[in-house]
């Protein structure tokens, strides 16, 4: 398994939206490398013909009828908002796409 570089940690941090400090990048690079090195053992079974289990329950088809249930009030919905305006969640400018 490849070692985890500082650049890789920085890339993961961007994907995960964590503004890691430089010292954290170094720290995590070492730790993640150790942990991955240890848990990489699972790949011993990679080529075994075993179906994956994503969930412990053998349930299927759990669905609800298309019936309206009460929503929160807008006040409740917005009660935790760090900022709001016009009954909407107020967020800083979105760089997004245009």
């Amino acid at each position: 398994m490849p070692g985890i570089t500082r650049e890789e940690v920085a890339h993961l941090a961007r994907l995960a939206r964590l503004e890691l400090k430089p010292e954290e990048l170094d720290h995590f690079a070492g730790q993640l490398d150790d942990i991955i090195g240890a848990v990489a053992r699972v790949s011993e079974v990679a080529d075994q013909d075993v179906p994956p289990t994503s969930h412990p329950l053998p349930l299927t088809n759990v669905m609800r009828a298309d019936e309206v249930r009460p929503s929160l009030t807008p006040e409740q919905a917005l009660s935790g908002a760090p900022a709001q305006e016009q009954q909407r969640f107020k967020v800083p400018q979105i760089l997004g796409e245009e």
Binding site: A16, L32, I36, E44, A46, V50, P52, P56
Partner: peptide, 26 residues
């Protein structure tokens, strides 16, 4: 979060998350 992001990221999914699910079956 970093570990999980790594395990799910493209190129690593099968080796890590995928294998872990096989272990789960075993």
């Amino acid at each position: 979060i970093m570990l999980g992001t790594y395990a799910l990221s493209s190129g690593y999914y099968d080796a890590y998350y995928g294998s872990a699910q096989k272990v789960r079956t075993l």
